[in-house]
Structure formats: C-alpha cells, structure tokens
Amino acid sequence: MNLHYPDTSIRDILRRVKTIAMVGASPDWVRPSHFAMKYLQRKGYRVIPVNPRAAGDEILGEEVYGALADVPPTFEMVDVFRNPDAAGPVTDEAIEIASEKGIEVVWMQLGVVNREAAARAEAAGLSVVMDRCAKIEYGRLFGELGWSGVNSRIITAKRAPFGR
C-alpha cells in the first residue's frame, strides 16, 4: 500500500485532537476497537462510540450513538473501525457535518484504505490518515512502542518522555 505520513503530521494530529468519534466501536473487550478506545481514554482523549447495533448502550463509560450526526458534542476526529467499503459512506457523513461538528481529521484504521473516500475528504479540507492505528501511532511517537520491540524509527539523543 505504501501510504506514507510524516511523523510530524501524525504527531500534530494526535496533539491537536481532544475528542474522537469512534465509528464501529465494539462493546466486546477483545475487539481491536475496544482496545484502542480504552487506551486513548487513558491518554486523555474523550472517545465517543458510534455503532448503530449498540446505540443507547454504554461502552467504557460513554453512551453509544447510532450515527455521527447524533453525537451531541463537537469532535475533531472520526476514527473508522469499519471495512474499506463501509468507510466510504462514513467519510461522506463526516464531510457533510464537518463544519457543524468541528471535524478536522478522518482516520481509517489499520487495514482500512479507501482512496476515493480519502480524496473526497481531502477536497473538503479534511486531513486523512489511512491504514494506521491511533493507539499504535500514539505509542510509537510518544515512546511506548519500543517497549514491545517495535522499530519506532525514532533516533534521538534527548531524554525519553516519562510515561506509564
């Protein structure tokens, strides 16, 4: 696939964003979306789950909404945990309500690539990241991923951030 995003753009997104609408968030704790949601909450993000099959339920202390347009507060980022085909309509929904909800970023998860949808989002002024996991990128850029033997590609003589 070879999608390349400079570390600075990813780092900038992760620093700027405060609230994330997670489309496809699962109440099942062994699903990747649940892992990512819990991790991102720990790192200080508010993550609002969007999942029509669980609408009205609660995941990790947050009420689940059936559609992006139903989420009451503003949110800077849409994190898409859906297959590449489903990512198209989700992206269009985000474009539709972007100014109303303050959406700046459409982020498609690891394995999710929809270039047509990405082009539409970029044409509408949104930033797009595809085929990346927000949890993994956070861990990589803020010094935690090396703990798992992952090649973070970070070389620096500065003291490591003090994280837990």
Partner: peptide, 27 residues
C-alpha cells in the same frame, strides 16, 4: 503545529542506527 520536521530513520545511516536505535537517554 509549526514544529520542524525531525529527520526520520530513512536519513539516518546504518552506522548511526547501530549506535542509537532503540536507546534514548533514561527518562
């Protein structure tokens, strides 16, 4: 935002990575 792009590993050569990769000063 506005932070300068830090050089990635692609620019760091083998010998540099052999000395530095994975090892930052202790937090």
């Amino acid at each position: 935002s506005g932070e300068k792009e830090k050089p990635g590993p692609v620019e760091y050569g083998f010998e540099t990575r052999a000395v530095h990769a994975g090892a930052q000063p202790d937090p």
